[in-house]
Amino acid sequence: MTNPRFTAAAALAMVACMVAPQAWAKQGDVLLRARAIMVAPNEKSSAILPAFPGEQVKVNNSVMPEVDVTYMATDHIGFELIAATTKHSASGISGTTGSLGKLASTWVLPPTLTMQYHPIVDGHVRPYIGAGVNYTLFYSEKPSAALVAAVGPTKVHMSSSFGLAAQAGVDIDLSEKMFLNFDIKYIGIDTNARLNTTAAGVQRVKIDLDPIVVGVGIGMRL
């Protein structure tokens, strides 16, 4: 014989699932998210040429806010555009440049568009994966005080970059319209840095940044 208490509990659980508020997205919906992100470069650096052929640079992590918007073209396919800017420093690793520490800093603006696949339409927990393209602009490049003291007034320029992006994440319902979001991206970014120095002439270094971007935040279905 079926336990009446078990039957009642199961019925209540089913009703709760049916009436619990969900924030799932449908075709035509717009999802707005605000995240805190950490951009962690996975850099590979060439030598600093021509003056320092045995020396390379490293790039620090950065934590900043980010805003993104996703338009659901169908129940399962969405297009996300992120807007964020982060500041990074490039430092010498060894030798002469290593003794200087930070060599230059720059702000990075990497708008990235991804096409996402959302396999679960009506669940309280909705994972997604995505792939897309990125354009990265470097701006407000500045030499460090240590570099200027060593080689005199210096101008820094870093070239813009096009690259591919990959993404995975999950939305978890908090209410009918609000949800918690976890997201991770890989973004292909590279740049050619040029330092026009007074004492050491023009120095060049190629840096493949290729950062991992980890984000957590709150989203809203509009």
Rank of each mutant, 00 (worst) to 15 (best):
T85E: 14
A90V: 10
T70I: 06
E80N: 10
Y71D: 02
T96D: 14
G95F: 02
S46M: 04
E43G: 08
Q56H: 12
A36E: 03
N42V: 07
E80P: 03
I37G: 01
A90M: 12
P65L: 13
Y71P: 01
Q27I: 01
A90S: 11
V57I: 13
I82M: 14
S91K: 10
W24H: 11
R35D: 12
S46N: 02
T85N: 14
P53V: 10
E66T: 15
P50Y: 00
V57S: 11
G28E: 10
A47Y: 00
V67K: 02
N42K: 09
K44C: 01
A23D: 04
V59A: 04
L49A: 12
V39I: 11
P65E: 15
N42R: 10
W24I: 01
S46E: 04
R35S: 15
M64E: 14
D68Y: 03
M38S: 13
F52N: 06
P21G: 05
G95N: 07
S62L: 06
S62T: 13
L49N: 11
A40V: 13
H88Y: 06
H88Q: 14
V19A: 14
P65S: 14
M18I: 03
Q27W: 02
A23T: 02
I77H: 05
E66P: 10
G92M: 01
V63I: 11
K26T: 15
G95C: 03
P65N: 13
F79S: 00
N61D: 15
I93Q: 10
M72R: 05
S46D: 09
I93L: 08
A20H: 13
D68C: 07
F52Y: 08
V59C: 06
C17E: 13
M18N: 04
P21T: 08
I93W: 01
E66N: 05
S94R: 13
V63N: 06
K87W: 09
I37F: 03
I37N: 09
S45I: 04
K87Q: 13
G28Q: 10
V69D: 08
A34W: 04
K58Q: 09
A40L: 15
